[in-house]
Simulated assay, not measured.
Amino acid sequence: MGRKRERASGFGLLPRMEARPHASSDKVTYRYHPIGAKPINLGQDKRAAIQKVLDLNGASNDAGTIEELWRTYQTMPQWKRLGERTKEDYAKYSVPLLAVMGKVSARLVRPADIARYLRVERADAPVRANREVALLSNLMTVAVERGDIDVNPCKQVKRNLERLRTEAPEPESFAAFIAWLTAQGSQRQVIALMAEFAAMAGSRRIEFLHLTLPQIDSIAGEIRTTRAKQHGGSTRVESISITPKMEDLVRRLRALPRPDTCLHVFTTRDGNPYTDTGFASTWQRSMAKALEEKVITRRFTFRDLRAYYTTQHKAQYGELPELHADVKTTARVYDRSRVSERKGLS
């Protein structure tokens, strides 16, 4: 028996488009049949499917523009391989980028235009501009691969100079901040424990924000987390040894109040794990209050605690921790040692 004929879903489609109603639901999948090639799945959104066909045939009124490249990039395999945090960041970077260059054809973008974007259009945010141009470079690569342009103009322009942070909190200052934060209430106590964990384990916030109790194995003497930045498609697990000093931290983490069915270590008042935005907001308010009350004399970021860990690890063990595949990256980004030690000849 052939497919049930249903004509309404096919109204308004472009030539060589096909509407395929689902037999068991009211959903419809759209396909495009290019000449001499296999059908292309266009998804279930009719308007988006029509736009894709227009883009494929160069008939869209914005075909080849930066806006169209951004839409196309989000449907490609390289986008799907990105982490969720990176996708969120790219979405943020796209807003100012498209506001300035969205309607411009990729064929018309010159290296001089990109240099102007970096130095003039975004002169008030030079580091953020570098990230936005990195996204633009990805979009230009899409244009190169499909034959719209021959050369990626972003690769011919130097980025704005970025100055790496050179300081980490001193142990005395950090201890004073943690003691003050712990006394501010139950939720600030959770934030204090998260800061202690970052300073003692060296993990990125995203790597332990949703840490669960089973990941803390006191019998084996280790805490297992998943490295946030993965390369080559493989998943890398990090094993953090529980030192005698960390045993006390682990004890306090287990003692935090949480619902009986909750396995997350760091939770909000209602028993849910912290979101990245919620944590960042609480951290910023706490830091501003600590400065106002003169608990600390200088602001430090949560990311500085990873540098704190690196610097203290080097001081205690005489070597840098394994935070990156290349130890030079760890040294350049996170080692904030103020004194370089070396032995003289005997």
Rank of each mutant, 00 (worst) to 15 (best):
S94E: 04
D148K: 05
K46R: 15
A37Q: 15
A199D: 08
L291Q: 05
K294P: 00
N138P: 02
V339E: 11
T75R: 13
L249Q: 03
R205G: 00
H22W: 10
D326K: 14
A220E: 11
K245F: 09
L181H: 06
A112I: 12
H313I: 06
R306K: 15
G344W: 01
I240M: 03
V28H: 07
A288K: 15
P39A: 14
E247C: 10
A123E: 08
K314Y: 12
A325G: 15
I149A: 04
P259D: 13
T182S: 09
R299A: 02
A175K: 14
L256W: 04
A179P: 02
E293T: 10
P171H: 11
T225D: 07
S173T: 13
K52G: 02
A125C: 11
G233R: 03
G12Q: 06
L164M: 12
R7D: 10
A183T: 04
R5Y: 11
K328A: 12
G185Q: 09
P153T: 02
G10V: 03
A280H: 10
E167T: 11
A307L: 05
D113Y: 07
R224Q: 09
E222W: 00
R5I: 11
A129P: 01
A91C: 10
I216Y: 00
R119C: 10
Q215G: 13
M101F: 08
E238A: 02
R254G: 09
Y334D: 04
P169H: 07
R71K: 15
R110W: 08
T225C: 06
P34G: 07
E68L: 06
V151Q: 08
Q44N: 13
W180P: 06
V250N: 03
R131D: 13
M76W: 06
S286A: 15
G12H: 08
E293V: 08
I149K: 05
R7K: 15
Q230K: 11
A63N: 12
E18H: 14
V333W: 04
T243P: 03
K314R: 15
L135K: 01
E145I: 08
A228L: 04
G344I: 07
K158P: 01
E84Y: 09
A8Q: 13
T86D: 11
I223W: 00
G2H: 09
K38P: 03
R252F: 00
E292V: 05
A199Q: 08
I296W: 07
R204N: 10
A176P: 05
S241A: 15
